[in-house]
């Protein structure tokens, strides 16, 4: 290694090391504290290694394991199906926006971008979903409401734009249809972009409790995050309602932390999978084969 490579790597170790430390430390505190007793959290603060070990919060969360398992199932289903559909349609639309032969491509881009600028607010949205589209208590609501994100479509458009125009144009001359060009040439060439946007979309589905809170009263179809959110809010209820004298002793502080740990769990496995696509040349390799 040359001198500048050594100094670059040293710099890299220091920089990434610091950023890594700053991001992992709070998470360690979170995990440690989620096993601490309520008494310790309130009187002594959040420890990494709890002095008064307690499983009370986890006991509360897993008090009905059947429910949790079912909620995991719902979450995994909407995450997988939603991400696949979203990624396919988003990149397809993004591809259209990059084609120079589409005269109205800028108008189309503005048509979708405009929706990020103006919105009627929550009330009209709710009424449209419930009274016009009749999606209340339907699995479709959980899939459709978080499905598309204008930012991601435009980011995909930008990645696709970087593939030289000559490629699709040559294919057109060879007589390939646009849809075929998209699926056979453009998609394989944008693996890193699809991987990163796919990851983000999956995370949005995974973490989405809001849609269920608004549109899903049927318990059997409630995803994990909403179930956890409800556990937390029912404990807050016990603590906050002024007219109530609830006779249950609940670990409010540690529960907040344990819920984060439980909800983060499995989705972390997705990241190493996505990292496979972050190897240099993975995009170009697809064409050269």
């Amino acid at each position: 290694m040359s001198a500048d490579e050594v100094s670059f790597n040293v710099l890299g170790y220091v920089f990434l090391g610091l950023v890594g430390l700053v991001t992992i430390y709070p998470f360690l505190v979170l995990i440690g504290s989620s096993f601490a007793s309520e008494h310790e959290l309130i009187t002594k603060g959040y420890p990494i290694i709890p002095a008064e070990f307690s499983l009370k919060s986890y006991g509360l969360i897993f008090s009905s394991p059947g429910k949790i398992a079912r909620a995991y199932g719902v979450t995994i289903f909407i995450t997988v199906v939603g991400t696949l559909v979203s990624l396919f349609v988003s990149s397809m639309s993004a591809y259209v926006l990059t084609r120079r032969s589409v005269k109205y491509r800028r108008k189309l881009a503005f048509f979708i971008y405009f929706t990020t600028l103006f919105s009627g607010g929550l009330a009209p949205y709710y009424i449209v979903i419930v009274s016009v589209l009749h999606l209340k208590n339907s699995m479709l609501a959980l899939l459709l409401v978080p499905m598309f994100n204008v930012m991601y479509i435009l980011i995909l458009k930008n990645y696709l734009r970087q593939i030289p125009d000559s490629l699709p144009e040559a294919a057109v001359i060879d007589g390939a249809g646009e849809f075929r060009i998209f699926t056979r040439i453009m998609l394989p060439m944008s693996k890193p972009a699809l991987a990163s946007i796919g990851l983000f979309t999956a995370l949005i589905y995974w973490n989405d409790w809001w849609t269920a809170m608004m549109f899903m009263d049927r318990e059997a179809l409630q995803p994990l995050q909403y179930l956890l959110y409800r556990i937390l809010s029912s404990v807050n209820l016990a603590a906050n309602i002024v007219n109530s004298a609830t006779l249950i002793d609940l670990p409010k502080e540690s529960l907040k932390l344990a819920l984060t740990v439980v909800s983060t769990g499995p989705i972390l496995l997705l990241y190493p999978f996505v990292q496979r696509f972050f190897v240099k040349g993975v995009a170009l390799g697809a064409v050269k084969e």
């Binding site: 189309l108 009627g120 949205y125 598309f148 479509i153």
Partner: peptide, 15 residues
């Protein structure tokens, strides 16, 4: 995508 944004964004936007 156009249909989606018409229904889920432009329709409520009238609000």
């Amino acid at each position: 995508i156009a249909l989606y944004f018409l229904l889920f964004a432009y329709l409520p936007m009238t609000g």
